[in-house]
Amino acid sequence: MNKPLPWWLRPWVRVTAGLIFLILLGGAVGGIYLTQQTPQQPIQFPHSFHVGAGIPCLYCHPGAQWGPVAGLPTTQKCWGCHQQVAKTKTSPELQKLVAYVEKNEGIPWVPVFIQPDFVHFNHRPHVAAGVACETCHGDMTKVTVAEAKPRQNMGWCLDCHSKQPQEKWTRLSDCSTCHY
């Protein structure tokens, strides 16, 4: 007997349901992917080259040693070296820097390592405690444009904090250390 298929078995229902599912899944995946993407920078700054040239991190990000924010280099800081670098005149990427200098504008760097609003991070104690930059920011000799290290979440922070001596743990696990 050729019974009509129940509605949930009909092809168009299944195709539609499948499509809706795929769209939702795609949206979710895409949304998550977009938030995890490394942002576009105004200048494709090659960290690997600069670090390889022996420039210490704190030269361009000096705030890390005395305050909460490491800071992004100003146009002047770049220009301080680059006006003496021959390549500045030839490299198309560096022409952008020249343009900023000529316009007397800052370079609109996009900060990459950003903690959420409710997390208050301070570089100084970490630098003072001897934490190397690459512990959190990755090995910059292998990175050109800065990339966000994924999953810098609270568990990641605590992983390191919990390895500290016991007497520090009270402070390092205190909620108000980061959240207020």
């Binding site: 000096p62 992004l72 800081k77 800052g106 609109p108 900060p111």
Partner: peptide
């Protein structure tokens, strides 16, 4: 503006710099 919690806009706020800003002014002080 950085409150939306997630999404590109929140995580990567484009900071327009203050040119000729004394450096300490750009360092969260």
């Amino acid at each position: 503006a950085a409150l939306t919690g997630c999404g590109k806009a929140a995580r990567y706020v484009t900071r327009r710099p203050y040119y000729d800003m004394p450096e300490y002014g750009a360092l969260g002080e």
